[in-house]
Simulated assay, not measured.
Amino acid sequence: MTHVLLLGGTAEARDLAAHLEAKGVPFTSSLAGRVARPRLPMGPVRIGGFGGVEGLTQWLREHVVSAVVDATHPFAATMGSHAAQACSSLGVPLLRLARPGWATHPDAASWTWVPDHVAAREAADEVGGVPFVTTGRQTLHHHVDAWADRPVVVRLVEPPEAPLPAAWTVLRSRGPFDVAGEEALMREHGVSVLLTKDSGGRYTQAKLDAARHLGVPVVVVARPERAAGVATAADAVAAATWVTSLESLRS
């Protein structure tokens, strides 16, 4: 009997859960538990970490998992590495479901691409003015000390993990966003440079188009490297096809 572990937390993971539910494929979605009120997928869900590679390996063995789909966020490199190691040790097939990044966006060549968040801050310093930071609350520690007295606009889904400087403006909202709204936000706060990461997808792409319309420079943190040799799919339909093909090979 097939049992798929779906490492989720993304829109793509929720789409895949719906496909697997419709096809009658047994699966369990796993969420990291970093969001207080996550958007839950269809089907069974577990929330919380596994305890590293050893804990994940044990969970896969105890729950007789026959395939794993890593549909975590493109920047969840640690979880991806753990999944690759655990699956390799047990001989369990692994698929990486990742939305395409923004490298093919029409404006991508005009953006400043950087390898990490410190480099992003340094690139924003060259522009000056008011940065609009949309890289998530777990990245803010890279900027707090350097920008303690500087006006900064930050958009978060969850509350910040630690108090932020008084000069900062914190906006709490969750996508999807539209271009008109993003333009209005940037005008209202006098944004001079946009800091984002190559999350890809349509939910948060509007800010990129708004930046182009307003002439706001964009700094993009590139995606981290993922484990080599892992099969990939760009959407839930392709991932569901991969799962069902494994099931047919067993029948």
Rank of each mutant, 00 (worst) to 15 (best):
residue 195 L to F: 10
residue 78 T to R: 07
residue 214 L to V: 14
residue 195 L to M: 11
residue 249 L to M: 14
residue 42 M to L: 15
residue 77 A to K: 04
residue 164 L to R: 13
residue 206 A to N: 05
residue 16 L to C: 04
residue 40 L to F: 12
residue 232 T to C: 11
residue 21 E to Q: 15
residue 114 V to N: 03
residue 55 G to Q: 01
residue 181 G to L: 05
residue 50 F to T: 00
residue 90 L to R: 05
residue 201 G to L: 03
residue 219 V to E: 02
residue 48 G to C: 05
residue 172 R to L: 09
residue 86 A to D: 01
residue 220 V to R: 03
residue 249 L to I: 11
residue 216 V to Y: 06
residue 48 G to F: 05
residue 138 Q to G: 12
residue 11 A to Y: 10
residue 12 E to R: 02
residue 228 A to T: 12
residue 67 A to F: 06
residue 143 H to C: 11
residue 159 P to T: 03
residue 151 P to Y: 09
residue 27 F to A: 10
residue 30 S to A: 12
residue 220 V to A: 05
residue 153 V to Q: 08
residue 137 R to H: 13
residue 39 R to E: 10
residue 17 A to C: 10
residue 115 P to A: 02
residue 78 T to M: 09
residue 16 L to E: 00
residue 243 V to R: 01
residue 247 E to D: 12
residue 238 A to H: 13
residue 216 V to K: 02
residue 107 D to K: 14
residue 216 V to A: 07
residue 226 R to L: 10
residue 154 V to F: 08
residue 125 D to L: 12
residue 129 G to T: 07
residue 122 E to G: 00
residue 64 V to Q: 11
residue 79 M to G: 12
residue 233 A to F: 03
residue 46 R to I: 14
residue 139 T to G: 08
residue 198 D to L: 06
residue 158 E to P: 06
residue 13 A to N: 00
residue 33 G to E: 03
residue 108 A to D: 09
residue 63 H to F: 02
residue 225 E to T: 14
residue 174 R to M: 11
residue 130 V to P: 01
residue 213 H to C: 15
residue 73 H to C: 05
residue 80 G to M: 10
residue 159 P to E: 03
residue 172 R to I: 13
residue 137 R to C: 14
residue 30 S to Y: 08
residue 102 W to G: 02
residue 232 T to P: 09
residue 244 T to Y: 09
residue 96 R to E: 00
residue 32 A to S: 14
residue 214 L to K: 07
residue 116 D to F: 01
residue 160 P to E: 03
residue 161 E to F: 02
residue 3 H to T: 11
residue 171 L to Q: 01
